[in-house]
């Protein structure tokens, strides 16, 4: 059975070297995180790359980052690469408690952005990628809302109507000084 042929995977997750782990050739990344790594924060929503509840951040060597839909991307795609998952953003204290959130997480919390939160990891990652992009190249005030629309617009949330996610992202970008006035 070709499906069960395996190969080793080695990558960096949230700054930690992982592997080599011997896993099936065709294992999807989401299954690797859920079933082999115990990281279940990247959620299975549609399983077809549409809802984006599963996205993680892929970090490139040139300092840029991007969202990846791991429900339709094989685990071995990430061989030798660096990713960040929702579990990697907050700072944890010695006892494992969260002691600090990233600016997007903080704003989402303060704005009551999510309800059930199943989609929240995808939104956090997408908005974090956006913030990191704007840190390299700030956005003009007039383009701010459209930029957020574009960055988050494919993500599906069934609870909230998106309003608080968007307002929170806007507030975070403004407070981080990533808007060019005028």
């Amino acid at each position: 059975m070709a499906e069960l042929s395996t190969r080793p995977l080695r990558l960096t997750i949230n700054g930690q070297a992982v592997g080599p782990v011997e896993i099936p050739d065709d294992l999807m990344m989401i299954d690797f995180l859920h079933e082999y790594q115990g990281l279940t924060g990247s959620r299975l929503g549609c399983g077809q790359g549409i809802c984006r509840a599963c996205v993680v951040i892929l970090d490139h060597d040139d300092g840029t980052s991007e969202e990846m839909r791991i429900c339709i991307t094989g685990a071995h795609f990430f061989h030798g690469k660096r990713i960040r998952t929702i579990e990697g953003h907050a700072e944890h204290g010695d006892d494992g408690d969260v002691v600090a959130l990233n600016p997007i997480q903080r704003k989402f919390v303060d704005h009551f952005a999510f309800q059930c939160s199943y989609c929240a990891p995808g939104f956090v990652n997408a908005a974090t990628v956006l913030v990191e992009r704007l840190e390299r190249e700030p956005v003009a005030r007039a383009d701010l809302e459209a930029t957020i629309d574009q960055a988050l617009g494919h993500h599906i949330c069934r609870c909230t109507g998106y309003v608080r996610y968007y307002q929170a992202a806007k507030a975070a970008i403004e407070e981080l000084g990533l808007v060019k006035e005028g």
Binding site: D25, D26, M28, Q48, G49, C71, I72, T73, G74, H76, F77
Partner: peptide, 8 residues
């Protein structure tokens, strides 16, 4: 193929 296509 398995990494980028097979999911769909």
């Amino acid at each position: 193929y398995l990494d980028t296509c097979a999911g769909c």
